[in-house]
Design a binder for these strands. Structure first.
Lengths: 238, 238, 238, 238
DNA sequence: CATGAATGAGACTTCATTCAT
DNA sequence: TATGAATGAAGTCTCATTCAT
């Protein structure tokens, strides 16, 4: 379902079948959670949380209703698991990249946004943001969960990079959270838009090429952040 | 809640329908559709489509459940009516401003975004975007409508301004649609976010001050658009 | 369903239709709660709490599933309403009788037990005790409710009568709660037994005539309580 | 949980089934039915039939769900087996005692009730009565079984003792079955009550001390049975 | 026009039972 | 023989929609 991204961050640490041989049934059992999460993500993305029926998720994963509840005790927990698998893990990886990065901050931001696009923006995982925005009022517990697991860490990640650039004299001093928001918002918005209007023959939504958009956005933002007189560092994008 | 009931205690022996009768009840009757749409907008914005109960809409509009169905044959039709009614007036205004503007393009963009924020971003109308994003997959016919009535005109408006700046030598040449998207997306995103997470005690969402965000965003974008060596024009923001 | 008991305690204070005329629908609405409670009591008695399906109750009352939930928000609340109507009210009446009684304590106990038999013991209401005994462990909230609404008041009522007899020198001094228990337990037990085994052709259960049992029990108990040398006061039973 | 798994780490090259093998596993296998019945009794007593899950019974017996169904083809059959196994042995004992008793009938009754309390009333077996009362309507065939195996013999036992006392001039002539009922009912009722409400902080249920109750009850009953003018015989109770 | 009592399809979730291993 | 993953019928409760008044 997910095409191997050219990213240096391999999603799973090389499965290459361990020594022990499993029976067919055991293999099914081990694959179940992943199959269920994939089915759930697809359906949540398509119809939203409330409108997705548990039985549909099960059917799409090729199991019965009861089996779904064998692995996840409620629809809400299933959704949380989807969020964890698709977002929480990625943000952690982003933190790793940022923590060990040596080059210019502009390049770091460029790389982070490209990673985000390849791992989230152009995958069904992008829909999760839409789902949260739309339904979070009805599930307050999910709001806190999402804030803790996704929004806060992502804000820390991007604010940290901007701070890093300011400290190094690469960027102008600017309000951190607002810049972080301005950095990621257009990308999420584009992904969400494509997810919602992409299926329909809508000129406006399709007039935008995601790759061009990403590069343009980075060009604008990095030039905007840049200290006057220097040359922009984000050229690597092209 | 019901004004002037035909109580038996009325001092006059039943006036047998006055000539006009355009009073109380009649006025209520004419105002009903608007009252219902207002109530529906508020609730759809708050809870989404599926989680909004028809009875709640009726209650909030001060009528009974049955009356709602007198005006709208189903919850779906009510939803469509809400979207249509609230979007039709959203665009014209901006077009007017842009058509007659004389000053620098940076100032024009600054003004347009401020107008958007005051007229849409910080009003319930902002919720409509959220609703559309969330539910458009379930109402394909609304997608075309929304695209024609909102997305396309808005894109034309902002692309036009950017083109104007490029033509005048104020801005660097850049991909028009992508810049237009980068201009408006963070604002819509912020409004939608506040609408969803604002009620919850979520640090990340509340860390951003809308006014600061707006100015920061404009600062970044205009400096990013600006032709090298000139001074940015968007300082008027205060 | 309930035959008018010869008791001086009229169950309802004479309905005799108030002045206002109701339409058919309104009449139905007003009768609904009673119809539902009757149906619920019958089914709870027959199958227990957990095994009684909400839809069955509705059907027996001649309405749909949804209507039941219009009047009682959950099966548990429905059960509580059944208890209140059938037991709580009766105990309150018993307290009234006891509070104003003038004659010998033995006669008071005789009368209370006869009332209990006629109003509970030989009606479906007797099954409620069985239901509670059987299922209370699974519904802790019901346990507290039943204890507060039924067990405690009943214990107070009977202990109070025994105390009254002891104070007046009619009865020997004895442990109050234990005597109260010994007074009411055989009657409840008999009723519960008949409710459970009555339908089956079981000699043992049917060998006992409730009337004889009641009189025998009273005879034994009152003679047992009686201060030595006096003549028993409970002869009125026959 | 599984004893002696045929692990590949076994030092001996698979002993190819020893001669007797009546060890560990074999012993477990033979003990299985009893372990399952014990677990089932405990759970049925605690939660009732419907609320007891098959898997819980299996877990408590230390086996898997599937194994339970190897021994009992359904939950219903398991329930019947529990009832049969626990009741059949309860009655014989009392009959023995009564048959050979030489002393006064009051002492005999005293002794029988004390035996009942120690052997049934204060053991899990008391719960069986509760289960029967609650569920017998759903298992009509058990009604006859229970009646034949328990109710009838118990009635014969106690009626016989009363008859013996009357014949000997110790007791007043009274209806036999009704007296038998009045003798045993309060004790069963108390045991059942404690079993159901004992866990809850219910004053009424806990206000009664079983030992005091037993003595009080015997005191009342024997005095009630006693022929006028004689002194009661049941003092032996201590 | 307006009401609100009534309906019943459908959602989530549980659990007795089966069967491949 | 023993396991436990899988099933699907059934239960409680919700809510869009209808219609007698």
């Amino acid at each position: 379902m997910r095409t191997l991204p050219p990213s240096t961050l391999s999603p799973h640490p090389a499965p290459t079948q361990p020594v022990v041989e499993h029976t067919a049934r055991q293999r099914r059992k081990e694959a179940r959670p992943q199959e269920l999460l994939d089915a759930a993500l697809a359906l949540f993305a398509e119809k939203g949380f409330a409108a997705t029926r548990a039985e549909e998720v099960a059917q799409r994963a090729g199991v019965s209703k009861g089996t779904l509840y064998l692995y996840y005790p409620s629809k809400e927990e299933l959704f949380k698991a989807v969020v964890r698998q698709n977002l929480s893990s990625l943000i952690a990886e982003g933190q790793e990249v940022a923590a060990h990065y040596e080059g210019p901050s502009a390049d770091l931001l460029t790389q982070l946004l490209h990673i985000w696009w390849e791992r989230v923006g152009c995958t069904p995982a992008a829909s999760i943001h839409k789902i949260m925005l739309a339904e979070v009022r009805n599930f307050p517990e999910l709001a806190q969960f999402y804030s803790d697991e996704v929004i806060e860490p992502a804000d820390r990640l991007f604010s940290g990079c901007v701070q890093r650039g300011i400290d190094a004299g690469e960027f102008r001093p600017m309000p951190l959270h607002e810049v972080a928001h301005a950095l990621i918002a257009p990308l999420i918005f584009m992904a969400v838009h494509r997810d919602s209007f992409g299926a329909c023959p809508v000129a406006g939504a399709n007039a935008i090429d995601p790759r061009v958009m990403l590069d343009t956005h980075l060009d604008l933002m990095l030039r905007g952040l840049q200290v006057r007189g220097e040359s922009p560092a984000g050229k690597a994008v092209a």
